[in-house]
């Protein structure tokens, strides 16, 4: 039970002789209250605002918002982008985490820091660097134009910027986890004659699956929600290069608050997806 403790274990701990159950429950109550208060002010209140605005003119208006062809185009573009970015960054993340967590080598801290770097880069700059490379005034601008290839202000630019922004997430989630676990089990498997692939899938993967899942979820959420970097490279062509976040901004700018927040609320469906995947893994683990 990784998502939470099992009932049985909780009962067992509670019924253990000598355990001060009163103090325990006070601590538990305090932790839950504190968590809920913090989340209520910071997370739930804005989320409720989003839904309240999206539904302020009734369900019909809410669902009508999704019939707009530009909205559909935006959703499609976001899905395509995430479908390319997330798997690529997951492969990278696993490879990087394996190299960094399983081996000791010089310059490791620098490598980790370089992987962290995109998080620290302001989204505006994340977009700008690709304009500096591939824009008309940039290094490859003229060459690209002569060969009639567009990167910025087209899909490739959007994908590159999104990939840059979400680059560290899977790796960063896995590295501390894999370091903490140590190499003993993998070493044992290899000594017993297992191959690299088998060791990874049968020994390492089961141990890191929660970290991997969180990494993928974060990466995906960020890929779908990224605004700043994509805004710089998108060109804002309606129905063509506007992703969901950009489309939300367009609708908001048009005073279409219902439509804007309806599209935004769609992104909260990702939470439902998270819920389903987690339940699925827990369920598979039990059987």
């Amino acid at each position: 039970m990784a998502g939470g403790p099992s009932r049985a274990l909780l009962d067992e701990i509670a019924s253990r002789p000598g355990r001060d159950t009163f103090v325990s429950s006070v601590i538990k109550g305090a932790f839950i209250t504190l968590s809920l208060l913090f989340l209520a002010a910071l997370l739930f209140a804005p989320l409720i605002t989003v839904f309240a605005t999206a539904l302020s003119k009734g369900f019909e208006m809410y669902f009508n918002s999704f019939a707009d062809p530009d909205t559909i185009a935006a959703i499609r573009l976001t899905l395509i982008t995430a479908a390319i970015v997330v798997p690529t960054n997951t492969v990278f993340g696993v490879a990087a985490a394996w190299a960094i967590a399983k081996f000791e080598f010089k310059g490791k801290s620098i490598l980790i820091t370089l992987i962290d770097l995109p998080i620290a880069v302001s989204p505006v700059i994340s977009g700008l660097i690709y304009v500096l490379l591939f824009g008309m005034q940039g290094w490859f601008g003229l060459w690209l134009q002569e060969h009639d290839i567009s990167i910025v202000f087209a899909l490739p630019g959007i994908i590159l910027a999104t990939m840059f922004v979400t680059f560290p997430y899977v790796a960063r989630e896995l590295i501390p986890l894999m370091q903490q676990m140590g190499n003993d089990e993998e070493e044992a498997a290899i000594t017993l004659g297992a191959g690299g692939i088998m060791t990874f899938f049968h020994v390492t993967l089961p141990k890191i699956r929660w970290g991997l899942l969180y990494g993928v979820i974060l990466c995906n959420a960020r890929a779908m929600g990224e605004f700043g970097a994509v805004s710089v490279v998108s060109g804002h062509i309606r129905g063509l290069t506007t992703t969901m976040p950009l489309h939300v901004e367009i609708l908001y700018q048009e005073y279409n608050f219902v439509g804007a927040f309806a599209v935004a609320s769609l992104l909260t469906l990702l939470a439902v997806l998270t819920l389903i995947i987690k339940s699925l893994i827990e369920w598979r683990q039990k059987t």
């Binding site: 008309m136 005034q137 601008g141 134009q145 910025v152 202000f153 804002h236 309606r238 367009i250």
Partner: peptide, 16 residues
């Protein structure tokens, strides 16, 4: 395509 006037000009300079 719509956005702030300045950033739109920049996009055209950069190849939009």
């Amino acid at each position: 395509s719509h956005s702030g006037s300045g950033s739109q000009a920049r996009a055209v300079i950069d190849g939009l």
